[in-house]
Amino acid sequence: MAVELTTEDKLEYNFFPNRSGYFQFRVKAANDAHIALSTAAAEVDPMYEIFIGGWGNSRSIIRKNRTKPDVAEASTPGILNDNEYRGFWIRFGNGSVAAGREGEGQPFVEWRDSENVIVEYVGVCTGWGASGNWIIEQAGSSPSAPPAMGGRGGFSSVCWVPASNGQVPPSSFAGGEDNGEQVYIVRSNFGGGVIPGKLVPSHNVAYVPWGGTENAVPEYEVLCDFNGSWLACNGANIPANAVPAGQSEDGEPLYVGRVVHDGNLTVGKVQPSHGCVYIPYGGQELGFPDYEILVQ
């Protein structure tokens, strides 16, 4: 769901709950579109700030705890425009903070912190002579609805359809194969998180990898109406256009990956902090550092 917002020239943040690890928006401003990543709906430490188009729309920076020196800086002349919307994404989690332009996979500014700050809220504001109009792709109120880049107008078109007991909704996205049978991409609430996994329809259940085990789940959500693709990936090098599909019990964003094992192409979860994809297979949770990741 997109939220439209106008911010005045006040440098006062408007906060939204967001634990997804991803934030996407469009903004129309002459300069100084500011984004805060905070542990509360307020300016409290620890907190990150990303200033896009600061210093007269010439530079973008990342700052921690509202203090100088800035921890990262990039030259970005003309990155904002007060007559047209410009799209951006912010990715955060496991000490990493990155910002990039809509439609581009590589960030224009990024930084890795030795401290792992658990971001709970994202704030936006404008200042230094600029007001702003924003279109914000709002994160879900629960971890079952993380956002993803892509789709109409560059915003999320990822669709998850509830199903159960082996049901395959129309337009389900097939991501693998098990003994000649198509395997579909699912996610399910399990172990305090929302875990990506696989659906083998003939088994009448879906499976998610968690706690070292292949866990059968009778109720799940299936990825539908999706036109993404797969990209070769290694370890924790998550591409910016990877599709967030859930989160761990600790709030870490999880992605969809797949790997060939035992002659089958099996879908599972990518957990960046572990540097691998985990697949549910043969009663076990198996990890692989080299895999394909779902992107959009």
Rank of each mutant, 00 (worst) to 15 (best):
A130D: 03
C125N: 11
T76W: 04
S114I: 09
Q138Y: 01
G93S: 13
G123D: 10
S131C: 07
W111S: 04
D113L: 13
W160G: 02
P146L: 12
P143I: 15
W111R: 03
G150P: 00
S142Y: 12
S131L: 07
P107M: 03
G129N: 10
A98D: 05
N83W: 12
P162F: 15
E110M: 08
G95N: 07
G93P: 01
F155W: 01
F155P: 00
A130R: 04
C125T: 13
W128R: 05
Y121C: 03
W160V: 10
M149A: 14
I90Y: 02
W160F: 06
I118A: 15
I90V: 15
P77G: 08
P107V: 09
G153E: 10
D113K: 01
R91W: 07
G132W: 09
D82I: 02
P143D: 13
G153L: 05
E84C: 10
L80C: 05
I90D: 00
Y85A: 10
S114W: 08
W128M: 11
P147K: 14
A99E: 03
W134V: 08
A139H: 04
V71Q: 03
Q106R: 05
V158A: 13
G127R: 15
T126A: 15
E110C: 06
E110Y: 01
G127A: 11
G129P: 02
G123L: 13
F155S: 09
W89I: 04
S142R: 14
V158S: 12
D82H: 09
D113G: 08
Y85D: 08
R152W: 09
G132H: 06
V109H: 01
D113H: 02
E115P: 02
V71W: 01
I90R: 02
W160P: 00
Y121M: 10
N116S: 11
F92N: 02
T126I: 01
S75D: 04
G127C: 13
A72I: 08
S157Y: 05
W160H: 03
D113R: 02
E115H: 09
P162I: 15
P146I: 11
V97H: 03
V117N: 10
V119E: 06
E120W: 03
E84R: 13
N116A: 14
G100P: 04
S144K: 13
G103C: 02
V122Y: 09
V117C: 04
A99C: 15
V161G: 04
I135Y: 03
E104C: 00
P146R: 06
G154D: 02
A163Q: 09
W89N: 01
S156D: 14
P107H: 09
G100F: 06
N81A: 14
A72C: 02
A130E: 05
V122K: 05
N116M: 10
S96T: 06
F108H: 04
L80V: 08
G140K: 11
G154W: 08
G151K: 12
R112P: 00
T126L: 09
N133M: 10
W134N: 03
V117Q: 12
N94D: 15
T76H: 05
N94T: 10
G153A: 01
I79T: 00
S164T: 01
R86E: 13
F88V: 04
L80N: 07
P77D: 07
W160I: 12
G100C: 06
V119I: 15
V119P: 01
V109G: 04
